[in-house]
Amino acid sequence: MSLKYQAVMWNRQKKIYDSVLIAGVVLYLGLFSGLGAIFHPNATAETLLIRGFGTAALLLLHIILSIGPLCRLNPRFLPLLYNRRHLGVTMFILALAHGGFSIVQFHALGDVNPLVSVLAGETRYTSLSDFPFQPLGLAALLILFLMAATSHDFWLTNLTPPVWKALHMLVYVAYGLIVLHVVLGALQAETSPVLAALLGVGLAWVLILHLLAARKEKLPDEKTYPAAADGYVNVCAVSEIPEKCAHVALIGGERVAIFKYDGKISAISNVCQHQNGPLGEGRIIDGLVTCPWHGFQYRPQDGASPEPFKEKVPTFNVKVIGGRVWVHPQPNPPGTAVEPARIGE
């Protein structure tokens, strides 16, 4: 929730998050350079930096990609999601340093433009072991740039969350390119089984986590609800909804969050206006539906954020008959007040 844009809306949680992040990156780079200098005394400082930045970016990318599915599988990981964009920007800076040093080291000493040398220096596209792996890294770096450059809320608002999310889902394309860049590049020269095993485990971890989360996510989208003559659909029993929490159901082409609080039932669109977070997985705090992702808040009765904030989500007409919750699938315009259904009436 912001009334004016700043570079970063700092708060205590973000400061702790970023301190841990920066300390972790500095510690990793220090350890990598120190151990590298001991075990590879002939390696130059540039080589150690290229490897250090590259492996740090790769490790951080695996952490970043794990956060989303971990949060879908267990809400205890949600604090990691809160400031994930700073992880992404840090990862881009590490990858940029890796790419920059590599281009200077391997391409800047000739009489050809270094970037042309990256793109056209190697052309054996038909060979796996000699495949031009550097253009793959450059393409991934371009995607990471686009994501880092558009990470501010200004872009989220102006591109709209679905377009912004679609743009940022390019991270999977970047991940694929980076895995190929490493397998066809560094792992062709470094034949130690440990390095290949580490990347293999990382790849398996990311893919298995995503497949598990995708399977869990698919279930609520497959259930359909029968409609009565007045158009209302019978969703669930009141008793199925925990107090100050929601039942989530796919109604009207998207998920609806049906909240129970203070003896009342209200239904709003499950899609947070900020980053399309799942409102139905949040709780009612201080009388307001609170998004589990970044804490954006909405009144359950009208789907509007309290003044002075302006976010609004569509609301749904709802009624309770015989202990069952009925929701009308036609959404009301965002911010429309709807009389909550009283439990027991």
């Binding site: 796996l128 072991s129 999977y172 397998v183 066809l184 062709q188 990347l199 790849l203 893919l207 995503h210």
Partner: peptide, 22 residues
């Protein structure tokens, strides 16, 4: 879901082929 399904097939294959061709 579609992106993950495609990656789950392609990336392990590419990884194995890349390591095997060393």
């Amino acid at each position: 879901r579609r992106i993950i399904s495609v990656l789950a097939v392609l990336l392990p294959l590419a990884f194995i082929a890349g390591i095997a061709s060393r």
